[in-house]
Amino acid sequence: MLRKSIFAAAMVSVLSMAQQANAHFQLIYTPEINIKKAGEVPLKLVFWHPMSNGHTMAMGEPVEFYSVFKGKKTDLKPTLNPITFKGLSNEATAYDASVTLKRNGDYALVAVPAPYYEESEDIYIQQITKVIINKGDVPTNWSEPLGLKTEIVPLSKPYGALVGSTFSGVVLKNGQPAPGVEIEIEHMIAEPDMNANKPQNAKVSEVPGGAIVALTDAQGKFSFGIPKAGYWGFAALGVGPDSEFNAKELSQDAVLWIKAHTLED
């Protein structure tokens, strides 16, 4: 996985291919992102390689896990329950959780995981992850930043994306646009089975030339044309302000998940 930008800055949004397809992605997963009724929504936190349906990494207890609804922050750590997620090649610690939706609008879910030591690269990885779910088809605050150390703020509705449309976002570091940042993009080829704690199928996907990569422009923005339905993850690599943990390099990444839909005839 590439952890450094190829260029010091990028003047336009571009798509390219990286050298390695297997990317680490922190998930905050629920099967449906548009919720119609009030109630408890099940969630699953997994650190995984979702596009290759590959190796699962063991999660420590998240440092923070919460929801934000119209500016109100609700701690979701009490809902965390450790589980064993069984990938195709191994199994590792993950978490079940839940969020309760009451009023209509946008609910931003945020996980700040414990830094993960990647032995093959001799670095720690911490992916500050966000997904926005909606209740009642009433948009409210999906485009507002949450004040995270680093985050991807959507410029297109993240739960209303359509196949064939373009998704855009802006990468922030300490609230400021981050130019020239490398973003790895992956499709969740096998969504988790909420009951069995394993992938729903054995599919894998390999992109010719390696991972899909975008670079942010001078204003920290990027765009991506969505080729198929399902969950898409965007990971802005090494953009966070924290660069060291336990006397080793820390890649503090910003992750955003969106769900794309097919427009019915």
Results as ranks from 00 to 15, higher is better:
K157T: 13
L2A: 12
T30V: 10
E91W: 08
T56H: 12
K203L: 13
L45E: 03
T216V: 00
L15R: 10
N90A: 06
K221D: 07
K70I: 05
L43D: 05
F85T: 13
S251V: 04
H55I: 13
S98K: 15
P199I: 06
T129K: 10
A214V: 03
N195T: 15
D75H: 06
H187S: 06
L15V: 08
V110L: 00
I189H: 10
K37C: 06
L15D: 11
A10N: 14
L155W: 08
V153K: 09
H187L: 08
G230L: 05
S52L: 11
R3I: 12
K198L: 13
V163S: 04
I185D: 07
E206G: 04
V163E: 01
N34E: 12
N141A: 10
P199C: 08
V110E: 00
A214N: 02
T216D: 01
K44N: 11
I152R: 01
A8C: 07
N104S: 13
K36F: 09
T30L: 10
H187I: 04
Q20C: 09
G180Q: 11
I128M: 05
A190Q: 14
V171Q: 02
T140C: 02
Y29P: 02
T30K: 11
F65Q: 01
S251P: 01
A235D: 13
A10M: 11
L43A: 07
V153Q: 08
S251N: 06
E244G: 10
I123A: 09
P208I: 02
M59Y: 07
Q26L: 14
G238Q: 04
N197I: 04
I183E: 03
P78Y: 11
V170H: 00
T30I: 10
